[in-house]
Design a binder for these strands. Structure first.
Lengths: 207, 207, 207, 207
DNA sequence: TATGAATGAGAGTTCATTCAT
DNA sequence: TATGAATGAACTCTCATTCAT
């Protein structure tokens, strides 16, 4: 499920350290922001020496990249697996939204990093695998097109636009949650968002 | 109400320089990101000495803050003014979406800065006037509540959730546009988004 | 005589600082070697902040390069000027040797840097203007060829080889002096070296 | 006298490894310079783990020292052996020059290291056995004094100066060869140098 | 002996900010 | 107001060296 480590043996000693550094990085970056986070903060929280970080990551950028990519890969894999058995396009989209909110709602630091640093990294870090973003959208677009083919969703609508609205709406919920001053279960907004988006794309029988 | 001058005389000599620095900052930050943008870059593009920047802004953070706040204030003021004469909640929301996309679609660097740096600043810089964000949302929420009162929009829906979906969807359109490799008119997506969001919140007469 | 500064106004304030840093660098590098010399050592000795060094030099390498090149340029210019009026090839070579030893004998730190770091920089730093080395050799070769044309120096001898012997011999004198444990006037060896080299290249009338 | 083993058994397993590390070090240092050469480069080329290097050498400095000293010892031993049977001081010096050039001309990396790093190490590394340098010079000085006693070489000349000229000239030939862009047999310059130096120190019968 | 993961001191360089002019 | 030279804190990354296995 977890996408597995890339470095050393991963068994226990190593791999564990790789993960510790990654987790610490997410934690620290979530707290102070990427640019303000110091390698020594990350190393300190991970319980390793500064230099050790560089045994597992080429540089600071790569840590962020890896954190985000790893999370994304895991999410996309899980989303694919969970949507596959579903037949109803509507159900698929509801499940996707639920999954998105559940995943981030369960891991606040990761959510913070994704909401706050993702766009930056999309622009400046390597090709941040916009690929991964595309994959996410593809899952949604696929379901939307199926819905259109089945006459459930509006035909004149571009599936890309619909996917963007869906993603944007969900994303904004996460951002609000992350910035909120008091805590609340992120999943609470799953249904309201799903309702709006689905009603927004569903075909009207009568007007 | 009108953008208003914050600095000195504003007339010509000063004020002009204030604005030049601000514009330069947006340009440079859009290009390299806030943390990578150097004061000397900004000063250079504005045609002033590095030190001069500090006659108009307390520090680097404040430049970003001011740029965003200024833009926001102008936008909110304009939105208020343009929505006031409208009576239909539906029209109000359509106009808001249109305005949002038009404003940013017309000023790419500003759009880039808003999409890429806004969240960061929301989290770390001063109180970034989340106030301003709240005002934006309030405009939308107001219209939504009116729509609910008039029986046009779904009643069981929380107006805040609806406003977030609306903002999130529009915001994602801007982000996509900013990150896109080829150019296209941002306004092209105004209608598709508006359709989805409005249909999503409108009350169904029949099902 | 001094080749003049490259940076700022050179008048007093600036230019003076450029030179102070350069002098400090030579001093420190002579003492600890280039790689062991820290920028902060140099800055400290020059009485400026670390960062100031970078206002005058792009990086550490450039400091060494500049120091060596400046010294070389000055030397070559002076050598050219002093040899010009001389007509006798023999006198020219004697003067060259004298000049070489006098120049370095007068400035021990510079001599140390040249003897200890020159070869390294010739190999790794930029093109260290091997150009400059070539110019030095050209002065000697020119005189040697003149001597050959006048029947004073052996004809079958390659002027380049002769120049190298001359330079090598003089250079070794400087190295010995630099490494010596007790001090002595470097110029003392001018005549002995000149004798050996000149007798070595002069044509024998009788055998 | 013979190079001799310094480390363990030398036979096969060990000793072989000691030598592999030494050779690798010379290779790497010749290529990148001492300070830029990393222990891991050397270990890698030698086919051993980084830590293993420290089983054979106390630290990085010692590797360079050992490499140079070993080469020097071997050279001095060989020079002594080859000059012993010769009776003519002139022949002895010619042979010394030939040996010097042949030894380095046959082993380019070693030559590079000697030319480029020797002076540094002479100054900073331990007592780098200036002892060894002295031994080299002593061989030359001995022959020179013999020549003077036999009335072959100029009497007023200090044997140390003559030896330095000889060494300096030969050394410069090696340096030129090492820095040259195109290859050529180093031994080609043996005779020209020998001619110049010998004629330079020989006594003139007639003038 | 051999390994190589881990260490952590250290250095070059950048750049926001200041201040004398 | 305006300048821009100067500052120096701060930070990333490297690499010689160690030591548990």
């Amino acid at each position: 499920m977890a996408p597995a480590a890339k470095q050393p043996t991963l068994s226990r000693g190593a791999g564990a350290k790789f993960q510790r550094i990654l987790d610490a990085a997410i934690e620290v970056i979530a707290q102070k922001g990427f640019h303000t986070a110091r390698i020594s903060d990350i190393a300190g929280l991970a319980g390793v020496a500064d230099g050790t970080v560089y045994l597992y990551f080429k540089n600071k950028d790569e840590i962020l990249m890896t954190a985000i990519n790893t999370a994304f890969d895991a999410f996309v894999a899980r989303a694919r697996a969970e949507l596959r058995p579903l037949t109803s396009p509507v159900e698929k989209l509801r499940r996707l939204i639920h999954l998105h909110l559940e995943t981030l709602g369960r891991n606040r630091p990761l959510a913070v990093v994704c909401q706050m640093e993702l766009r930056q990294s999309a622009r400046f870090l390597a090709p941040f695998s916009n690929q991964r973003m595309i994959e996410y959208f593809d899952i949604a677009r696929q379901a939307i097109r199926e819905g259109q083919e089945q006459g459930l969703f509006r035909e004149e609508m571009r599936d890309l636009d619909a996917a963007r609205c869906l993603f944007g709406a969900v994303d904004e919920m996460v951002t609000s949650w992350v910035l909120a001053e008091h805590e609340y279960p992120l999943l609470d907004v799953a249904e309201p968002v799903a309702d709006i988006i689905l009603l927004g794309i569903e075909r009207r029988l009568k007007r």
